[in-house]
Design a protein around this nucleic acid. Structure first.
Length: 465
RNA sequence: GGCCCCAUAGUCUAGCGGUUAGGACGCCGGCCUCUCACGCCGGAAACUAGGGUUCGAUUCCCUAUGGGGCUGCCA
């Protein structure tokens, strides 16, 4: 049997980190087994669903590069399909219309809680013709033949839930829209979904869904309930813990493949390997490599993985990826050319995010507007050294070996160490005490720009004195 | 409260009865060095507790504890 998986987000917000991870698991599992991966938007809750979120979710998928083979389907457009099965269920006596008012329901619940018993629907409308007009929901009629629902989970093993834990749950709202459990089951069955990989917060929905599968006469799929992602405090990962929206990571300068690499390692492992290409993930991924305990989201490890991806990136590709951040920073369009690529190479080992890289590259495009005060104090007593440098460099061929010669001569003349020459140059070039190496910067900046910046600092020091 | 799930360092994890309990992030120290990084070397740091089963339990079972989830006309 070939494999079909799916990711069914509800468009009530941005795609979040946890959602992306389960999507990734579904994707990898499908690709690993040479199967199909479907995207289905679960927008049956018309109150909370928004079209813009659907679009954003699809965009996020494009960004991370997880391509789906089918969809996106929208449940809001599949009303006729559900209606057919709802009628069938009612006709067969497996579901019934419930005319109970919300008031009665909440009173019922209240009294049950106060009596210390489970808040369950009391089956008032199970009896036919209790009432036949007005708003109604449709409830699934719990079969009374079986005492429990059992299923096998690929991660947790055998799971058994007593039927007494459930009640006649609502499958259709009074506005005729199907509820999650119903729509999900019908769609999964109709779309041929064979393997359901989802967060283990759905574990307790599964018995209900299995009951529905049986009532509808569908084959029950395989299940894998993956552990959830928690925040530092071990509470469910949410905005309180930091960014949960995938788009934020894009905006902060994370590489999509780095993010996926980080997320897959939350729960998945393969030997001692930390860094995986997508091909490797597809090859190695399987359910039995997933753990069963929840994992805490660790931003610093994500940052590390991102830095590894930046280091390993083809410089010209990295340049393309950094360019938008640089344009944003400099408030003008930046050409992706050879010069940018060369500049990018000089920060590739230093930046952990694209955004950070842009910050480190800024000086290549704009001469410093001010100088690091501490640096000036520590390394730039007067302009003498810079003037000597300018004099020696004036007529040289602009190459690393010539520059080295000039600097060594200066060191000799002033009887100082390299750092005493390098730092003033660094400050002149970048305004800062931290930057790429001085030779590589000067070569990229070019002779006239480099000397101009050294002159600028020299003048600055003179004016100050 | 009830039901379900989970439990190796701060964190992510390896382990699937016998290991000096392995790797990674982070942290600390050192080396390299024109700054910062990178890189390299080294270090501290874990089997939740108590009962079983067994010649032997981190590993299997039970209980406790802790954490999470569900308990919606949300998904």
């Amino acid at each position: 049997m070939s494999v079909v998986t799916r990711f069914p987000p509800s468009p009530t917000g941005f795609l979040h980190i946890g959602g992306l991870r389960t999507a990734l698991f579904n994707y990898l599992y499908a690709r690993h087994h040479d199967g199909k991966f479907i995207l289905r938007i679960e927008d049956t809750d018309s109150e909370r669903s928004e079209k813009r979120f659907s679009e954003l979710i699809i965009k996020a998928f494009e960004w991370v590069g997880l391509d789906f083979d089918e969809g996106p389907y929208f449940q809001s457009q599949r009303g006729e399909i559900y209606a057919k099965y709802i009628d069938k269920l009612i006709k067969e006596g497996k579901a019934y219309r419930c005319y109970c008012s919300r008031e009665r329901l909440s009173k019922l619940k209240e009294s049950q809680i106060s009596k210390g018993i489970k808040p369950h629907y009391d089956g008032f409308c199970r009896e036919q013709n209790r009432k036949t007009s007005g708003d109604y929901t449709v409830r699934f009629k719990l079969p009374d033949s079986v005492g429990k629902v059992e299923f096998y989970d690929m991660i947790h093993g055998k799971i058994s839930v007593a039927l007494s834990e459930l009640d006649d749950f609502i499958i259709v709202r009074s506005n005729r829209m199907p509820m999650y459990n119903l729509a999900c089951v019908i769609d999964d069955a109709l779309m041929g979904v064979t393997d359901i990989i989802r967060g283990d917060d759905h574990l307790s929905n599964t018995p209900k869904q299995i009951l529905l599968y049986k009532a509808l006469g569908f084959d029950i799929p395989r299940y894998a309930h993956v552990p959830m992602i928690l925040g530092e405090d071990k509470k469910r990962f949410s905005k309180r813990h930091g960014a949960t929206s995938v788009s934020v990571y894009k905006d902060e300068g994370y590489l999509p493949d780095a993010l996926l690499n980080y997320l897959v390692r939350l729960g998945f492992s393969y030997k001692d390997q930390e860094i995986f290409s997508l091909d490797e993930l597809i090859r190695y991924f399987d359910i039995d490599r997933l753990g069963k305990s929840a994992s805490v989201f660790n931003p610093s490890k994500l940052l590390w993985i991102n830095s590894v991806y930046i280091k390993n990136r083809e410089p010209s590709k990295l340049a393309e990826e950094i360019a938008p951040f640089l344009s944003e920073l400099l408030k003008r369009e930046i050409d992706v050319d050879e010069k940018l690529t060369e500049a990018v190479k000089t920060v590739q080992q230093r930046a952990k995010t694209l955004k950070e890289a842009a910050g480190q590259l800024k000086f290549y495009f704009e001469a410093p507007s001010d100088y690091d005060e501490k640096g000036i104090k520590k390394y730039c007593k007067d302009s003498g050294l810079l003037k000597e440098l300018l004099r020696l460099a004036e007529d040289i061929k602009w190459s690393e070996s010539e520059l080295k010669r000039v600097i060594e001569e200066t060191m000799d003349k002033f009887q100082i160490k390299m750092i005493k020459v390098a730092q003033p140059i660094r400050i002149a070039l970048t305004g800062k005490t931290v930057s790429p190496g001085i030779y590589e910067m000067m070569l990229i900046l070019g002779k006239s720009e480099s000397l101009k910046r050294i002159e600028n600092l020299s003048r600055f020091l003179d004016e100050r004195a």
